[in-house]
Amino acid sequence: MNTTPESHCKKTALITGAASGIGYQLARIFADNDYNLVLVDKIGIKLTEISSKFEQEFGISVKTIIKDLSIATSPDEIFLELQQANIKIHVLVNNAGFGTYGLFNETDLNTELEMLQVNLVCLTHLTKLFLKDMVKQGEGKILNVASAAAFQPGPLMAVYFATKAYVLSFSEAIANELEGTGVTVTVLCPGSTVSAFHEKTGMADSKLLKGKKMMDAETVAEIGYRALMRGKTIVIPGLLNKILAKSVRFTPRKLVTKIVRNMQEDK
């Protein structure tokens, strides 16, 4: 970890789920914009590689924290470790998350409970911990990564869609509460993005994805970063994703749910 005096003058961004995908690309953008980094993921080897690479390439300080965010004590442990290291967080990026695919009565309960912990509880917990200091200091930014899935129910990914709806609602609400404090909250709602997410969930062959061109993680991260810096509350990358998100408001919920079910199916 770089400990030169110059490194301590820079602002610091904490990014969860930083080892790959949108999280990695966000980390790279922050590094390129002269932020020190705190990178959190459960994939330790990958974090070590990224840390070494970014410190050499960008001349920044990178602290890595290897944590499984599905464990309830992880947020408190992260916060305490940073307090003990006297590291002040200026930007919190709650990016970590995962999904499962299948009929709810057939999917694994333990996996879904872990998903709730990572996608929803951990995000809320970390926001609560770091927000208090941001408000005291009169500055700070929070980026919560939701999904275009947040705007409608999602048969075959019922719990995942519901967690992202929570992230959207929660982010909008506290963004309103924080007006005038110097702290802003942005929620990033990307559509399908090129990553290992779809293979891990088992939905790579669904009609939603098969043969479709997806936005790359670097583009999504860049759009999210720019919106965060402007203090924008909701950002939906891609014109089609914006249209779909807005059209849901004018379509009967039962029909929306049927359409999503049809898109999610792999037949």
Rank of each mutant, 00 (worst) to 15 (best):
M1W: 13
N2W: 02
T3Y: 13
P5R: 13
S7L: 03
S7P: 00
K11A: 09
T12P: 06
A13W: 04
A13I: 04
A18S: 10
A19L: 01
S20A: 12
S20L: 14
G23K: 00
G23V: 00
Q25W: 14
I29W: 05
N33A: 10
Y35L: 03
N36W: 02
L37W: 03
L39M: 15
D41L: 06
I43D: 12
I43L: 15
I45P: 05
I45C: 11
E49C: 09
I50N: 07
S51L: 08
E57P: 07
F58N: 11
G59D: 03
K63E: 09
K67G: 02
D68R: 08
L69A: 07
P75K: 15
E77F: 10
F79C: 11
L80H: 13
Q83L: 14
Q83Y: 12
A85M: 14
N86R: 15
K88P: 03
I89K: 05
H90K: 09
N95M: 08
A96T: 02
F98C: 08
T100N: 13
T100I: 10
G102R: 05
N105W: 10
E106I: 08
T107K: 04
N110F: 11
N110Y: 11
E112Y: 09
E114P: 03
M115A: 06
L116R: 00
V118D: 00
N119F: 00
V121K: 02
V121C: 02
C122G: 04
C122T: 07
K128E: 15
L129W: 09
L129P: 05
L131H: 10
D133C: 10
D133R: 15
V135Q: 11
G138S: 12
E139I: 08
E139N: 13
A146D: 03
A150T: 07
G154E: 05
P155L: 05
M157G: 04
M157Q: 09
V159N: 01
V159R: 01
V159I: 11
F161P: 01
A165M: 00
Y166W: 07
V167K: 00
V167E: 00
L168H: 02
S169A: 08
A173W: 10
I174E: 09
E177Q: 14
G180T: 15
V185E: 00
V185A: 00
V187P: 01
L188V: 01
L188I: 02
T193L: 05
V194N: 04
S195C: 06
A196V: 15
F197D: 04
E199G: 10
G202Q: 12
M203W: 01
A204F: 03
D205H: 13
K207C: 09
L208S: 05
L208M: 14
L209Y: 02
L209V: 03
G211T: 11
M215C: 12
D216K: 06
A217N: 10
E218A: 14
E222N: 10
M229V: 07
I234K: 07
V235R: 04
P237K: 08
P237D: 08
L239F: 07
K242I: 12
L244C: 05
A245G: 01
K246H: 09
S247C: 14
V248Q: 12
T251R: 07
P252F: 15
L255I: 15
R261N: 13
R261L: 15
M263T: 03
M263L: 12
K267I: 09
